[in-house]
Design a protein around this nucleic acid. Structure first.
Length: 432
DNA sequence: TCTGGGGTCCTAGGACCC
DNA sequence: TCTGGGGTCCTAGGACCC
């Protein structure tokens, strides 16, 4: 007999900022922003920074004065640190139940239906306390019969201080649930973005309860199939089950804005080689091989004459070999590079992925196996060295043609937990 | 001067086939 | 000259997410 799911969404509060604060407790109570790669936009804000009216994605250069005026502390994004902290939290959650879906770097869904829990609020408070104690990051937890409602619950749990970080909608009667739906503006619903929000308001749909009570047919007409599911989920009908663990991803994408715009082939070539090497490493780490790729080159989209070029590539033999991928991507770059253009950004997309274990031998099977075995052991040695001695300890020469493409990260904090040279130091003084 | 990066899913439209 | 209907597969682009 199948059991209907009970979802908990564990959502880290201001995740990047909270990670920084773990190692800088002196910054408690101060306004903090974490800036995107190249120090461009604010991608995480402390509550104090939010209170100053700094929106998500705020371009830093427009807010310099405000930052200065209020002593806003700025950090460049330190993804090594955040990724490691995220893994620590995931380890705690999967130890509670393996039925955990890591939805993003700072959010996970847990299916509680097979756990023996009598009081969900008490259970969630304990989880919250444990994550805070063991990792140092505050989380909010929402519990509900569907993912959409769990998201909504965690949102209230985060904002309503009286709830102290936990809201269990699952255990409430429907009229009580509806009270929370009524208090949730339409644009705060998971799946309603900047296009749908205004369109729904024009139809007189202002909050989650309005959406829940909309006729399914109208929901579909206005918002497509996803809209109908959204409405159903708000009524407690589960349309989005826990994702099967181990499902293989569809794409691996890696791209960067350059530190400055350039029309120097060597600089772009180094960028493409480095991005390709990194993306190929990510394929290998998950045991994936790629069959297709797209190389995209962009000019600055904020300047007139914005253009982009997309070049598709096809590999007859699925591969994750950095050397092979770099040579193919660089060859493609040579075809499409134009000297008159000021390039701003490069992007590598791998898709049509297969897991190496499911790769079927085809007509050329013998050749493939032969070739990929050498490639596999070479890549294995390559990755082992880099895993042990640090990223890019060995690398391809093409990556080193220039360093001038690398984005800025002038305000990055130390990689406290992933780099031996950057461990935090504690100084103790004994007073005699 | 200065505006991120990495994903998923759906839909529309074209090519091609019977 | 008029001019079918249905199906699949692929791609590009949009919308949304964190």
């Amino acid at each position: 007999m199948s059991v209907s799911p009970i979802f908990a969404l564990v959502d880290c509060n201001n995740f990047f900022v909270s990670c920084e604060r773990v190692f800088r407790p002196d910054l408690e109570g101060r306004p903090i922003v974490v800036l995107s790669s190249n120090d461009g936009c604010a991608v995480s804000r402390s509550n104090e920074a939010k209170a100053l009216g700094i929106p998500m994605g705020a371009p830093a250069f427009k807010y310099r004065d405000l930052f200065k005026q209020h002593g806003v502390v700025q950090f460049s994004a330190n993804f090594d640190l955040y990724g490691d902290m995220s893994e620590r939290i995931t380890r705690i959650l999967t130890s509670i139940t393996p039925r955990t879906e890591v939805y993003s770097v700072d959010e996970s869904f847990l299916d509680l239906s097979r756990l023996e829990i009598t009081d969900y609020t008490a259970w969630a408070r304990e989880v919250r306390a444990r994550v805070l104690r063991e990792v140092g990051v505050p989380v909010s937890i929402g519990i509900a019969p569907t993912k959409t409602m769990a998201k909504l619950a965690s949102d209230h749990a985060k904002k309503d201080l009286e709830l102290a970080g936990v809201l269990d909608l699952y255990s409430l009667e429907r009229p009580e649930q509806e009270r929370y739906l009524l208090q949730t503006p339409i644009e705060n619903i998971w799946g309603v973005g900047r296009r749908l929000g205004p369109r729904l308001k024009a139809e007189g749909v202002f909050n989650a309860l309005d959406l829940a009570q909309m006729r399914p047919q109208l929901a579909k007409q206005l918002m497509g199939i996803q809209g109908r599911q959204m409405a159903a989920e708000l009524n407690g009908v589960c349309c989005h089950p826990l994702e099967r663990i181990g499902r293989i991803r569809q794409t691996v994408m890696h791209g960067r804005m350059f530190g400055e715009d350039t029309n120097d082939f060597a600089i772009v070539e180094a960028a493409v080689a480095s991005l390709t090497a990194r993306a190929a490493y990510r394929l290998r780490r998950e045991g994936l091989l790629t069959r297709r790729a797209v190389l995209s080159l962009y000019t600055n989209r904020h300047k007139p004459g914005f253009t982009r070029s997309d070049t598709p590539l096809y590999f007859t033999t699925p591969t994750a070999d950095s050397g092979e991928l770099i040579s193919q991507l660089v060859a493609a770059l040579q075809e499409v590079f134009r000297y008159g253009i000021l390039y701003h950004r490069a992007n590598i997309l791998f898709y049509d992925l297969v897991h190496e274990s499911t790769l079927q031998a085809d007509l050329f099977g013998m050749v493939n196996l032969d070739g990929s075995d050498t490639s596999k052991s070479r890549m294995h040695a390559f990755d082992s060295i880099n895993d042990r001695y640090g990223k890019r300890t060995i690398r391809y020469a093409a990556e080193d043609l220039s360093k001038r493409w690398e984005p800025k990260h002038q305000l990055r904090s130390p990689r406290y937990t992933t780099n031996w040279d950057e461990l935090p130091r504690i100084v103790t003084k004994t007073v005699l």
